[in-house]
Design a binder for these strands. Structure first.
Lengths: 222, 222
DNA sequence: AATAGAAGTTTGAGGAATCAAAGAAGGGGG
DNA sequence: CCCCCTTCTTTGATTCCTCAAACTTCTATT
């Protein structure tokens, strides 16, 4: 049976793999992402391998099989629709829905999920701008530019805030750094490791490199 | 930690105890209600007893402590609000929400639950007419009369359908036997073990004793 | 009262997921 | 080229929940 632990591992493998899609995911990365000791990850990966969800090369690393990726996308779909549902229907704050969805994603049936999807009008992205895979397991991969690498003097719009830490999200919200908001790059200071932008409401915000990496933008579509 | 298994046992003990509130609940009843072998129930009850959730008399039976009852009511509240939410907000059929809620009741946080409660306008009963305990763990106990014992020639209203089997609920729905519907007793045939009622839409329905026991009514409040 | 049968408890074992700690593999610096 | 350090795997143990089956207690019936 697919336990919620298995779902979590597979989801995490998928997310980690996105960071570096070319090479095999090392055990250590997975173990620390799952917050377990390395031995636990090894044991679990063996059962995932036996279930045909990952390809496992001992001491080499792992990679999701097609089946594993489909499962990961299925879990991710549940997670992201739930996040949006919690924000749009139940009025929770976008900074707190990640944790809630983390539990619920293993408990909602497909039937309930599709009702939510319908109620939300088949959304494409969750409250943080993360794309929602389709029920058939397809995900739109859009090339977004981190604010830290964004070219000056171009109009852009925030597409995604790539961090689920409530504290960071609250900071982002307070400063108007929310998906859909337009902005333009005022300046970048390499030595100060900082980026300054002007938002559509004319407020200017300066971010350090770490924070600027997490704000992903796309060229504005007027 | 309170696992969902513990929550299920405590909930089930509460429900079973309602059937016969005066005496201790025998192990066998609990075991069959939980669909486990008797030995499993014994083992589990010991840990419930160690956690102070039940009083356990070996070979005598069990009874919830105050703490156990509070936990049971908390779980029941989650279950019933979820059922109503699934019907009223997501449009699921009342015959199928019990199963859905059975899983979700262990995954939903208090925060999310109270949002649902608010959205539903602090309901008193779930779609089947079962009372919803308050957040403080209080439950309104109303004396309802089974159709099988109902006095003739009195106007009444269906208050509750006490069965969660989807098949029975679908039957009830098809025949208009839904909480809130008014009816009057046309006749009872002791030898045929049957009861005939006329519903408010003038349809008459005849039920056997087993079914009539599950339809609970209250004197009509005009 | 003796005893058969029902009801309940105990014991031994197994699967899922975890950790701690010992052991093996592999790669880079001296 | 060898050793050492990092990374990974193995091993042994633990917790939670379950079952099967042996065993005990109680009750009711003759």
């Amino acid at each position: 049976m697919i336990t919620s632990t298995v779902e979590n591992y597979v989801k995490q493998i998928y997310l980690q793999q996105q960071e570096d899609p070319t090479s095999l995911l090392p055990m250590g990365k997975l173990a620390s992402a799952m917050k377990v000791v390395p031995g636990t990850a090894t044991a679990m990966v063996k059962t995932l391998s036996d279930s045909g969800l990952v390809d496992y090369e001992p001491r080499g690393g792992i990679r999701l099989t097609h089946g594993g990726e489909q499962l990961a996308l299925h879990v991710l779909r549940r997670h992201r629709i739930l996040e949006l549902f919690l924000v749009d229907v139940l009025g929770l704050d976008w900074s707190e829905v990640h944790e809630e969805a983390e539990t619920l994603e293993h408990a909602v049936s497909d039937k309930v999920l599709e009702r939510m999807d319908k109620l939300l009008n088949h959304p494409q992205v969750d409250p943080h701008g993360d794309p929602i895979p389709t029920a058939k397991g397809q995900i739109r991969k859009v090339r977004l530019i981190p604010l830290s690498e964004f070219a000056p003097d171009t109009a852009a719009e925030i597409a995604r805030v790539a961090d689920q830490d409530p504290a960071f999200l609250q900071f982002a919200e307070k400063n108007g750094l929310i998906p859909g908001v337009g902005l333009s790059l005022l300046g970048r200071d390499v030595h100060a490791d900082s980026v300054t932008v002007r938002l559509e409401n004319d407020v200017t915000v300066t971010l350090g490199g770490k924070a600027a990496e997490k704000i992903l933008v796309r060229a504005a579509t007027e």
